[in-house]
Amino acid sequence: TFTSYQLEELEKVFQKTHYPDVYAREQLAMRTDLTEARVQVWFQNRRA
């Protein structure tokens, strides 16, 4: 599960791009204290 802060950050990036590159995902992962893999999976699920 994600915190409301994490979801907010993820959604913010999703609004800009549905396909963030690895750099964007790593920045987001650091900001949200998630792994890059978790961020990647979240985007895959969000796009589905």
Rank of each mutant, 00 (worst) to 15 (best):
E11V: 13
V39R: 00
T17D: 13
R46P: 01
N45G: 07
V22E: 11
N45I: 10
D21P: 05
F2M: 10
K16M: 14
T1I: 12
E8G: 08
T32G: 02
N45W: 14
T32V: 12
N45E: 13
L7F: 04
A29N: 15
Q40S: 12
H18R: 13
L10I: 01
L7H: 06
E8N: 09
W42N: 00
R31C: 06
W42T: 15
D33F: 09
E11R: 03
P20E: 01
D21T: 08
V41S: 14
V41W: 15
L10P: 00
Y23K: 12
A24S: 09
Q44A: 10
E9H: 05
A24Q: 14
P20F: 03
A29W: 04
Y5G: 06
F2L: 14
N45T: 08
Q27W: 10
V39Q: 01
V41G: 12
A48Q: 11
D21V: 02
K16T: 12
Q27L: 12
Q6S: 02
T17W: 07
T1N: 12
Y23C: 13
S4M: 11
R47P: 02
R46K: 09
H18T: 07
N45C: 13
E8S: 10
V22M: 13
K12I: 07
E8T: 08
A29K: 05
T35R: 03
Q40H: 12
K12E: 11
K16G: 07
T3W: 05
R46V: 02
F43A: 00
M30I: 12
F14W: 14
L7Q: 07
R38W: 11
Q44F: 07
Q15A: 12
T32W: 14
Q15M: 10
W42F: 03
A24L: 14
L34Q: 03
A29V: 06
T1P: 12
F2C: 03
T35M: 04
E26V: 11
V41M: 14
R38V: 14
Y23Q: 14
A29P: 01
Y19G: 01
D33A: 11
V41T: 12
D33M: 11
T35Y: 02
Y5V: 07
A48Y: 07
L10F: 04
T32S: 04
P20N: 01
F2Y: 12
Q40E: 14
M30H: 11
Q15K: 10
R38C: 14
E11M: 15
L28V: 07
R25Y: 07
A37R: 09
K12W: 05
A37S: 09
Y23D: 10
Y23N: 14
D21C: 06
E11L: 05
W42D: 02
Q6N: 02
E36F: 07
P20G: 02
Q15T: 07
K16A: 11
T3Y: 05
Y23H: 13
R31F: 07
D33S: 11
Q6L: 02
E36L: 11
D33T: 06
K12D: 04
L10C: 04
F14E: 00
Q40R: 14
F43E: 00
E36Q: 08
F2S: 15
Y19Q: 15
F14R: 01
R46S: 03
Q44R: 08
D33N: 14
V39S: 12
W42G: 00
V39M: 11
K12Y: 05
E9C: 07
L28Y: 01
A37G: 09
S4I: 12
H18N: 08
